Amino acid sequence: MPRRIEHTSGTDWEAEFGYARAVRVDNTVRVSGTVAVEDGETVAPNDPYGQASHIFEVVDEALDALDASPEDVVVTRVYVVDFDDWEPIGRAHREFFGDVKPATTLLEVASLPAPDLCLEIEVEAVAKDA
């Protein structure tokens, strides 16, 4: 079964932890849990909508690198530090996916790697043949 790994998105965490931003095996694409960090700094600190929007940009790049698109996404998992942030996060999710409507899980977690991070998102897609 051929395995393709996207080149790193540049975070220190990928190198230090030893993982890929996204992996494709056959037609299945999995994008690792992604937070709103760029160049070691939190993007849109304490802003759930801004962070979700940024995360979806990173997810879109990862999907594209592995010949997939948002239309191929079948599952998202959203980890939040405050469940009350569901509305702005949901708005960013809805804007990114439009009519695709993947199955989704929203879970509250105790913390994320930095205190100003609001959420982490992971994605699974079933892509067309590359």
Rank of each mutant, 00 (worst) to 15 (best):
P70G: 06
P70F: 12
E71G: 15
E71F: 04
E71I: 00
E71Y: 12
D72E: 13
V73Y: 01
V73M: 06
V73S: 08
V73R: 02
V74F: 03
V74G: 08
V74A: 07
V74R: 09
V74E: 08
V74P: 02
V75C: 09
V75A: 04
V75Y: 15
V75S: 09
T76A: 08
T76E: 14
T76Y: 06
T76D: 06
R77G: 09
R77S: 15
V78M: 13
Y79Q: 07
Y79T: 00
Y79V: 00
V81K: 08
V81P: 02
D82E: 10
D82V: 01
F83P: 03
F83T: 00
F83K: 07
D84F: 05
D84G: 11
D84P: 00
D84Y: 04
D84N: 12
D85W: 09
W86M: 09
W86S: 09
E87I: 08
E87S: 12
E87Q: 11
P88W: 01
P88R: 08
P88Y: 05
I89F: 07
I89S: 04
I89L: 12
G90L: 10
G90F: 13
G90T: 12
R91V: 12
R91H: 13
R91F: 08
R91C: 07
R91P: 06
R91T: 15
A92Y: 03
A92H: 11
H93K: 07
H93D: 15
R94S: 12
R94E: 12
R94N: 09
E95T: 14
E95L: 07
E95N: 12
E95I: 04
F96T: 13
F96C: 02
F97S: 09
F97E: 14
F97H: 11
F97V: 01
G98L: 12
G98F: 11
G98E: 13
D99N: 14
D99W: 08
V100N: 08
V100C: 07
K101L: 12
K101C: 07
K101F: 07
P102E: 05
P102W: 05
A103P: 00
A103R: 10
T104M: 10
T104V: 06
T104W: 01
T105V: 07
T105A: 11
T105Y: 02
L106N: 04
L107M: 06
L107T: 15
E108F: 03
E108L: 00
E108S: 05
E108W: 03
V109Q: 02
V109Y: 05
V109D: 06
V109W: 00
A110H: 04
A110R: 10
A110D: 15
A110E: 14
A110Y: 01
A110C: 01
A110N: 07
A110T: 09
S111E: 14
S111V: 00
S111G: 03
S111I: 03
L112Q: 06
L112Y: 05
L112I: 00
L112E: 03
L112P: 05
L112N: 04
